[in-house]
Amino acid sequence: MIKVSDINKTFHVPQEVRALVNVSTDITAGEVVVVCGPSGSGKSTFLRCLNRLEKADSGHIWIDGIDVLDPKTNINKLRAEVGMVFQSFNLFPHKTVRENITLAQKVVRKRSNADCQEKADLLLKKVGIHDKSNAYPDNLSGGQQQRVAIARALAMDPKVMLFDEPTSALDPEMIGEVLDVMKTLAREGMTMVVVTHEMGFAREVADRVIFMDEGAIVEVGTPEHFFTNPTHNRTKLFLSQIL
């Protein structure tokens, strides 16, 4: 489903930082991959390169056979297939919850209004906030906002979902409700790449854990391997710090 081969990314502003160094990995359809690592390790950059919110300097990325970095690729068409959920939700504050979910269906997928509404109803029920469908995002709690953001991404019927620290901006009591939605998605067979510090989620749901440090992939393995028997010292140090 996703094939990443030798991508590199260097930021020049404010100072020169090598954010990604020769990153390669394969993610198969239906797989749930958790990417973790200390802050500044390049995990968010890696995720953002997958749908070209950041453009990798070199290397190749294919999603469902489409070359992401090829300038001839219709990037908007590709992004419609790749849902993304942000740390800070990024809901559209001037649109109601329902409009947040229907807008892109209308203007990108060109669906009829009836289809958009039907999809919105279905997803709002799925993420459990159907009663707030006419509220504005500012009137929702963080957990509710993030669930709307997930519904908004799912409305496009994506083949892959990218989660960029979806629970990091939430109050502790709201993390569970968001993780529950993500677990449901994982069970339904969605291909997911999740950048998170929620090790419980990784242990329970992930098929594979990728540990990154200083822009490179240090260790890859099953949760069992990763948590009980890590091979690299960097991984051991990281786990000792967060567990």
Binding site: M84, N90, P93
Partner: peptide
């Protein structure tokens, strides 16, 4: 307008013009 708004719009597959028209300009 926070750049997360553009990113959210673009990540849904909206073009630059669509995200300007529906998301950035109204705000």
């Amino acid at each position: 307008i926070h750049k997360g708004q553009t990113e959210a719009a673009r990540s849904l597959g909206m073009s630059y013009a669509q995200s300007m028209r529906h998301i950035i300009m109204p705000q």
